[in-house]
């Protein structure tokens, strides 16, 4: 895109490429761009283009269907709620794993990765078995009048499950690197335990926490396998947006599926942009 300006500019090439002792920049860069274009940009472009064959009015109509709006609301709402819940819970788990030495710590540490490692369908079956009205946790919850499985609460539970490791694994290394002397200094200066946490630990951990939040959120928005088992998938109630895409595809409504996909893409992109901006601001403090 800048080929013309480059050719006309008398500036040396180094104006836009830092000279490096590593050879092969053109080849490496070329591959990177081709690969990214092929794998990421091209499919997304197709997604962006596809819906418009319905026409603007058609897209709008397809998008504002109550069933679509409900699915989008559930997908993003539950994902946001689950990611927000995972922030304090993940911090607590990471804190316990880094700050205390106890027998079986490594095993507990390994358990954190299970939601990563498990095929999501397996997780879905397992969660459903437990939270179903006859299940181990589902039964007492049902007695309390809470319907866990086959309801939006089930969606939330599944998203909690798959999001937790993202928060733990991003926060853990930061907590590990936190200099204990800095906290000791705060204590000798008269800070209470609470002040030490809020003034010293939190500012250091916040960027990682936000990073973990956005990862958990992004993953939860796209989660399919574990959710469809436990959600019950009732239209307007417990149907998630990815499932709606699948349903529309099965009805050969490709453009309609792409409308939902485009909406999800736009909302996710906006959300991640906002989170990254906040993170950049926080990480920038102290390094300016």
């Amino acid at each position: 895109m800048t080929a013309a300006t480059l050719a006309s500019a008398p500036k040396p090439r180094t104006a836009w490429v830092q000279p490096s002792i590593l050879p092969g920049f053109p080849l490496a860069m070329g591959w990177t761009l081709t690969w990214l274009g092929l794998i990421v940009v091209l499919p997304l472009t197709a997604l962006v283009i596809r819906p418009w064959e319905l026409g603007l009015a058609g897209v709008w109509e397809s998008l504002t269907e109550p069933r679509v709006l409900a699915a989008l609301r559930l997908s993003f709402g539950a994902a946001l709620l689950a990611a927000l819940t995972n922030v304090p819970l993940g911090l607590l788990v990471a804190w316990t794993l880094t700050r205390y030495e106890f027998p079986g710590r490594r095993i507990v540490d390994a358990f954190v990765d299970l939601p990563f490692a498990l095929p999501t369908a397996v997780a879905g079956i397992a969660l459903t078995a437990i939270y179903a009205p006859t299940g181990l946790l589902g039964e007492p919850l049902a007695k309390l009048g809470i319907k866990a499985a086959y309801s939006p609460i089930g969606v939330y539970i599944a998203l909690l499950f798959i999001g937790l490791p993202f928060v733990v694994r991003t926060v853990q290394p930061v907590l590990q690197d936190l200099d204990i002397e800095v906290e000791e200094a705060a204590t000798t200066l008269g800070a209470t335990t609470l002040q030490r946490f809020s003034h010293v630990v939190m500012p250091a951990v916040a960027p990682a926490l936000i990073s973990g939040f956005s990862l958990a959120f992004a993953r939860a928005v796209g989660e399919y396998g574990s959710v469809i088992f436990i959600a019950g998938n009732m239209p307007l109630k417990s149907e998630i947006a990815p499932l709606l895409i699948v349903i529309r595809l099965e009805q050969y409504d490709y453009a309609g599926a792409a409308v939902v996909g485009l909406a999800m893409l736009a909302i996710s992109f906006g959300a991640l942009l906002a989170v990254n901006g906040l993170q950049l601001f926080l990480a920038g403090r102290g390094r300016r």
């Binding site: 800095v182 200094a185 008269g190 800070a191």
Partner: peptide
């Protein structure tokens, strides 16, 4: 925190 001692560490321990 009630001892009112000023402690200075080898690696500064600044915030």
């Amino acid at each position: 925190r009630h001892r009112k001692v000023g402690m200075v560490f080898q690696h500064y321990a600044l915030f």
